[in-house]
Structure formats: structure tokens, C-alpha cells
């Protein structure tokens, strides 16, 4: 049975409708979890404080983890790669052109030889 939405690659099939159904079920479960929260929560009271220890709450701007702190481990882990690749992006216009000439030359050798 072929639904109009089924995508066939010649090796496998994939039906996005199943995923849409899965998405909807996921959203319903999330909604149910959210609904089961404490309904007597009072906004603006002490209940909203993130710390029970009595420590002062830091300013909002300091709680947020900024972009450059993310994936620090990843870039540190493959530092050797980044140390080679990042400096290639020199930002000098003639270097950009030089790369084009290099690629042309290498391609020419490949195409002429093979």
C-alpha cells in the first residue's frame, strides 16, 4: 500500500505522517506533564525563587550561559584541526584569489593526467 506521502529511496521507505503523529503524541505528553504541575503556584511569591538556601539570586544577565561558552570542549578536543584550518581564513582578498588559482591548477593536472 503506497500512501501519497511515502518517500522511497529505492532501498528504504519513509513516511513523514508517522513522524507527524509521533510529534503530536510527544506534544500531548509534554502538555500532560505541564498540566500535572502544582496549580496553586503563586506568582511573584517566594515560591518562584530558584534557591532555597537563602543565597541571593544573581542578576538575570549572569545566569544566562553565553554563546562562546558553549562547545568549548569540542573545539578544545580537536584543537589540532582548528589550529590548521582557522588561520587559512586570512581575510586577505588576494589569498582568496590565490586559492582559486591553486584549485584551477590542481584540477587541470587531475583532468589532463586522468
Amino acid at each position: 500500500m503506497a500512501l501519497p506521502t511515502v518517500l522511497s529511496s529505492g532501498y528504504g521507505l519513509w513516511d513523514p505522517i508517522l513522524w507527524v503523529i509521533a510529534f503530536i503524541i510527544g506534544i500531548v505528553i509534554a502538555w500532560m506533564l505541564w498540566k500535572s504541575g502544582v496549580s496553586s503556584y503563586k506568582k511573584g511569591s517566594e515560591q518562584g525563587r530558584p534557591y532555597l538556601s537563602g543565597n541571593a539570586e544573581p542578576a538575570k544577565g549572569e545566569v544566562h550561559i553565553r554563546a562562546s561558552n558553549l562547545y568549548w570542549g569540542f573545539t578544545e578536543g580537536i584543537k589540532g584541526y582548528y589550529q590548521r584550518v582557522v588561520p587559512l581564513h586570512t581575510g586577505i582578498a588576494t589569498d582568496y584569489l590565490l586559492w582559486i588559482f591553486w584549485v584551477t591548477g590542481i584540477l587541470l593536472i587531475i583532468v589532463m593526467v586522468v
Binding site: 587559512l88 581564513h89 581575510g91 589569498d95 582568496y96 586559492w99 582559486i100 591553486w102 584549485v103 584551477t104 584540477l107 587541470l108 583532468v111 589532463m112
Partner: peptide, 25 residues
């Protein structure tokens, strides 16, 4: 062959294929 190489280099640079992508960002 030379013509094809020139065309590939020119258009690959224009569509931002590495290692001719530096202008893209």
C-alpha cells in the same frame, strides 16, 4: 578539458565550495 576546468573553478568559487568559500561568510 581546459575549458571545463576553468568553468568548474569559476562556478564552484561562485557557489562557495571549499576551498574557494572564503568570500561566503
Amino acid at each position: 578539458k581546459l575549458a571545463l576546468v576553468l568553468i568548474i573553478a569559476a562556478l564552484a568559487a561562485k557557489c562557495g565550495a571549499v576551498p574557494m568559500h572564503f568570500w561566503t561568510p
